[in-house]
Amino acid sequence: MRRLGTGVLVLFGVSVITFVLAHSVSSNPLVAWFGRGIEENPGLAQHYFQIYHLNDPLYIQYFYYIDGLLHLNLGWAPSAEEPLTTIVSQTLPWTLELIFLSLIFTAIIGITSGILSARFAGRLPDKILRGLYLTGMASPAFFIAIVLIVVFSGIFHIFPTSGAYNVSTYVSPPTITHIPMLDALITGRWSTLGMLLWYAILPALSISLGVYGILTRVLRSNMIDLLSSNFIRAARARAVSENRIFLWHAFKNSLVSVITLLAIIVNISLVADLFAEEIFAYPGMGKFAVDSALALDYPSILATTLIFATIIVLVNLGADIMYAFVDPRIRYG
């Protein structure tokens, strides 16, 4: 409960900071949103002044905003002329499936790389792998995305450059969860699922390549430590095979530490998602967030920031619970 309370406090802090920062971007947000047209339409300007209480002090505007949030009203997106709840319902599923796919890639690449690094610790393969993941971690997300596009789309023509599906041939799966990939999976629309996966591979990979190194480093370090620990010695003394020792004892026990990384990996992935969606023109909430920022559309900036913050808080909470579950020694107050 204390963790939950902390999470709520974090969200409150995020909302305050974002609200103040967003409002400092533009003294006359209506001009920023609508340009010259709004000046020539006093009726429209008056309407927006009323619904956003723009004539009131900032703290009063914030009060109205929080009141709206408590009623599950995220507000109105001026740049899109839509209620933000509608936009979030349209864009969040794409982001969720992209993040999920990137986590799978991160796990596959990170764990494989970690095992190999541990296996060849200090030798050439380890050094190559270390160079690769350090390059990934040191590269900005947008750089990785552009390199992937240039290589796999521009040179080899293997993957599409942009979008979430082929507009000409895409058939939406029946809506069940509102997450297209999941809906396609549930309803057995394999060609649709294949297309969605195909278009999501590069953006997901661009997210994973920047973050998998964290997993690799921790896994490598833990496995090397564990392989020289007493219970491994005892296993060897019992003539347990080295394969079993490596994959069953060392790897399995190292996975506990991986769970602690989940929250960090998701956090970084969400940041990288903004760049990936924008560069790959993936119609998720990350792209909407960037486009909103470029349009100085601060109701949308606020909403997307809060939703991303909520996801991060929930993932952190989930990671804490999972960690306590797999390691009974951990207890939270």
Partner: peptide, 20 residues
């Protein structure tokens, strides 16, 4: 006719070069 919203300048150029 399909109009795509592609913000990235690099992606736009690649789509043009590739004939997409």
């Amino acid at each position: 006719v399909i109009i795509y919203d592609v913000t990235s300048a690099t992606t736009n150029l690649l789509n043009l070069q590739n004939g997409n």
